[in-house]
Design a protein around this nucleic acid. Structure first.
Lengths: 126, 126
DNA sequence: TTCAATGTTCAATAATTTTTGAACTTATCG
DNA sequence: CGATAAGTTCAAAAATTATTGAACATTGAA
């Protein structure tokens, strides 16, 4: 049995697949949290995202993100350490991830609410 | 019967909806063609995109793009004139549309093949 | 070793999205 | 007027995606 998780190579990452993968609230929330709290990869395990859905649902969504080439998943013991494939995405679709993340910042629970008393519109409501 | 087509206001446009709408090859091709050949709105009718699907399928996809706030549809006689909501999208999600369009340039049939003999990778294969 | 934690897999179900063809509306053209 | 062109609507069918719970595998810890 192939024990290593499959990750598409940079050239295999396609725009339609990436957009489809991100066109889902749960997955958008995952990458948004990853982007903000993921500087230290050690904390970003699957169960970190349990507030977003059941164990099985997360396994499914994380698999989608991985297969689309958006995140990297590194098994470590019984855990999986997740990280954004920032560089690969930037090379493939310049500016794309940055614009998404900037717009998605308010999506993830526990967002660093920018201490703004006047929320304006954020474009992120379902 | 409300004869005017509904278009979400800028504040009603949400990132998940936009991403979901664009996570489809047909719709990505539509906006890519619109971006490249749509400077003159007069030519961009629904039937212009007939190479991408049946009449009914296009009606469906164009409706999706409209409801997501990505395009504007103006009835003119028996036709519908389509245009990208570039400004609204740029205000809402700065840099997003530009990055998509730059990456999607090769998607639409009849693309201005950039006269490049060495295609590299384009990230747009299905 | 035994227990608990972290995830995956599978099959079934549910929900959503897409595609189709037929019928229909509206407007334009001769 | 009568025919054609451009689209829409509707309901049914097809296809895809997402959710669940049960069972399982692996690793780490007591």
């Amino acid at each position: 049995m192939t024990n290593t998780l499959h990750h598409p190579s940079p050239e295999e990452i396609t725009l339609p697949a990436v957009l489809a993968a991100l066109g889902d609230e749960t997955r958008l929330a995952i990458i948004s949290m990853l982007a903000r709290f993921g500087e230290d990869e050690r904390n970003m395990t699957c169960s970190y995202f349990l507030s977003l859905g059941s164990k099985t649902a997360l396994s499914y969504h994380i698999g989608k993100l991985r297969e689309a080439g958006i995140i990297h998943v590194r098994p470590e013991g019984t855990k999986r350490l997740l990280s954004l494939r920032r560089t690969d995405l930037e090379n493939r679709f310049p500016g794309f991830l940055a614009s998404i993340l900037a717009s998605a910042e308010q999506l993830a629970p526990g967002a660093a609410s920018s201490s703004n008393e006047f929320p304006e519109q954020s474009g992120l409501q379902s």
